[in-house]
């Protein structure tokens, strides 16, 4: 392994399932002595938004990988019908299922996980354009977000890093 290996993640999604990839891989990278930078943009802003991070959800609508069996109904490969997914409470239900499963596997909730990464030395940055678009301020972010930067700044600070877009 290169002595000075660097990995940078771009988090552009704000759903519960898409919050985890950067957290898991970032944590693994830090555990291997690799420098980690995470840039949050667009819907990914929810991951660092104090008011949003504990309320991330996963919707069963148009999610072809989500099967009925995950809800404890033994129906093999049958998906959750989209028509059923639109019923009130279905998103909350799917979210609860996923959160319970994560808890069972002792995977920390997103906010706690993010704090672990910060404590381990990960550098978090918020995207300037998204901040402007969503009318957010630095105070809206969780501890550990270093600054609000432009895409160009991000390119400068990730010189030589492997970049992973999520």
């Amino acid at each position: 392994m290169a002595e000075d290996r660097k990995v940078a993640f771009i988090c552009s999604k704000g759903t519960l399932d898409m919050a985890y990839p950067a957290l898991v891989m970032g944590w693994a990278a830090l555990g291997n002595g690799i420098d980690v930078t995470i840039f949050f943009t667009f819907w990914g802003m929810d991951l660092i938004n104090k008011n949003r991070v504990d309320k991330l959800e996963i919707a069963p609508v148009a999610n072809t990988s989500m099967k009925m069996t995950m809800m404890g109904v033994n129906t093999g490969n049958l998906g959750i019908p989209n028509l059923m997914g639109v019923l009130p409470g279905m998103t909350a239900f799917a979210t609860k299922l996923m959160k319970d499963k994560m808890k069972e596997l002792e995977v920390p909730p997103v906010s706690e996980y993010l704090q672990m990464l910060v404590d381990a030395g990960a550098k978090l940055y918020a995207c300037k354009m998204s901040v402007d678009m969503m009318g957010l301020k630095k105070e809206d972010f969780v501890d550990g977000v270093i600054d609000i930067v432009t895409a160009s700044d991000f390119m400068d600070m990730t010189d030589g890093a492997q970049i992973i877009f999520i």
Binding site: G33, E106, P108, M116, D119, A120
Partner: peptide, 25 residues
């Protein structure tokens, strides 16, 4: 690492200070 921080009464930060760059390993 998480088992250590949960079980040994030590924080993630302290772990990275004591054993820099990949503490659990």
């Amino acid at each position: 690492l998480r088992t250590i921080t949960n079980g040994a009464g030590i924080t993630t930060k302290e772990m990275f200070t004591l054993f820099p760059k990949g503490p659990a390993k």
